[in-house]
Nucleic acid binder design. Sequence first.
DNA 1: ATCGGATGAATAATCGATTATTAGTGTTAT
DNA 2: ATAACACTAATAATCGATTATTCATCCGAT
Lengths: 248, 248
Amino acid sequence: MDDQTNHASASPGKRMLSEQVYAHLRDAIMRGDHAPGDALKPQDLAREQGVSLAVVREALVRVVGEGLADRLPNRGFAVPAYSDRRWQEIAEARRTLEPAMLRMSVERGDVDWEARVRAAHHRLSRTPAYVPEEGEHYSGAWAEAHRVFHRTLLEGCGNLVLLETFDRMWTASELARRWSAHRNPGRDGVLEHRRLEEAALARDADTAAEVLTQHLTQTAAGLTGDPHPEPAAAPSPAPAPAPQPDSA
Amino acid sequence: MDDQTNHASASPGKRMLSEQVYAHLRDAIMRGDHAPGDALKPQDLAREQGVSLAVVREALVRVVGEGLADRLPNRGFAVPAYSDRRWQEIAEARRTLEPAMLRMSVERGDVDWEARVRAAHHRLSRTPAYVPEEGEHYSGAWAEAHRVFHRTLLEGCGNLVLLETFDRMWTASELARRWSAHRNPGRDGVLEHRRLEEAALARDADTAAEVLTQHLTQTAAGLTGDPHPEPAAAPSPAPAPAPQPDSA
DNA sequence: ATCGGATGAATAATCGATTATTAGTGTTAT
DNA sequence: ATAACACTAATAATCGATTATTCATCCGAT
């Protein structure tokens, strides 16, 4: 989670307080530290992180721009309430966009892309989806490997605008998933990912797109249902043996 | 530009300074008041509009989030430099997304949608693309009618996430167009729009999608080329008799 | 008892001023 | 003449404090 510790000279987002606060806030929301509907009070956040209101405010505005928070004029900021309707729309948007992007990738990807797909799939397949500490949810490492795999598959398309759109939708998906009752016990995400990799590297655009569509459809179906009642960051003991995460 | 004059109780963005400043800044960039590469200095903007740095800063952050400005850490904000590559990517992204959305619209749109499509097309067809005052560029009223027509066509899909994506890409397109040498003298945008309306209302998804794809492809082709050298808001006398704008 | 308006605490929004970083300019040593 | 360094002006980033708005509570009239 806190990965800003030792970056020698890496990212362009260097030492700007607002950048760190933004990243922290974003991660906190994605991790579920704040429940949907919860107010994000600038003063509290500022005190917690020992910074002024201005930087928190800037971070909040950015987060709102990404759809990770709502802003109510003169009423402050809040984590968006879970909306089944919105989740289904996100899923549909992904089904509209990603198969088309995957086709482009398969048609255009070069050898470097192939290599990166292999690497990403390997890493994903070797990362445990669940670890004892992190409660009922899949591990942060797995979530990241999962994201990188899906993104790498699409990166062959070479279109940064489309990839930005993918990033945005992925983020929205992950947040929705975090607050959904996930219920896809028999789902075999590992197999689906392997089939995706194979079709992509075989340059079989039709199959790849079809598999991805199925993948996304299953995920959407799995997440349909009630916004669950879990209070907030309460690691209740897993009621059922942890299945594969519903993995798109 | 100032369209916040007489909204009885319409928009949620009520009286918040940052909102007004944001809208103003956004419009200014879209109108071309600031040339690509120009620095957007918070102090100047604050002085011009008689507000504090904080609100200008907030507006700038939002504008950056929309892709209408770049941020260089510790170096301030700037209007993004024109990039032919990026423009082509935007055009491709629109070709990827919009025909698919139009299909959904045609399949799902109800009578209300049909009525709004007719209304939007009527308004577009009756709005002059050029007016003497506004130099070589199409009028603000036409640009808005044009946007509303295209958006209305897609609104039948009923997917807010996809429509948000459309809005984002449309904005990027308009900015790119503003700073491109537009060169499509013989283009008949009026005809293309009428064909779009007809196919949509006839519920002919294939034809509608095809026409839209052509529309977008022609626009992209028309805008390919050099980032032109016009200094900044310098209304040079139109060198050629104004043709239809390259209209997607 | 209930509705409506006054009162005050909480906090969102904005401001004016301070600190930190950058870019430019001039100077000096090689 | 040039390259490295010091100094300075401009401005980006941040802070602490002020003003404006909302929400809850309390009181009094019907």
